[in-house]
Amino acid sequence: MTIKSLQTNDALCTGCHICQLACAMCQFRETNPKKGALRITGKFPSPGRFHIDVCNQCGDCAAACPTEAIYKDNGVYKVNEEKCDYCLLCVDACPYGVIFTHPSMNVIFKCDYCGLCVHYCPTGAIFE
């Protein structure tokens, strides 16, 4: 499945991290929320809420990329891993902190609007 937009409602997030499990399964076929291309942050003990950061395909990452490794495909910014030289300029450029790295990889990864997080979110905190 693919989605056309990605919205969030922090008040509904329960911090289950199922979205990240689903994302990593979709992108890498692995069980590892650390390879999910979105972030859930707990704000505890005060104010006692979760915060969700997702990609809205703004393209700031692509604009910052010196090697054109991030390209637009049907409204979605994707990564050409061949071209990524792991300079991390995109990580700095992303306003939401949702360009991701992982110790096992030497390229960045990001959300490609596959929509699995929306499908699996049990509360509707992430929606199209």
Partner: peptide, 19 residues
């Protein structure tokens, strides 16, 4: 109660965070 809070990978958030 202000927030439903759950354990890892739980779709049934039974934890209630209160203020």
């Amino acid at each position: 109660v202000i927030t439903d809070k759950c354990c890892f990978a739980c779709p049934t958030a039974c934890g209630k965070y209160s203020h």
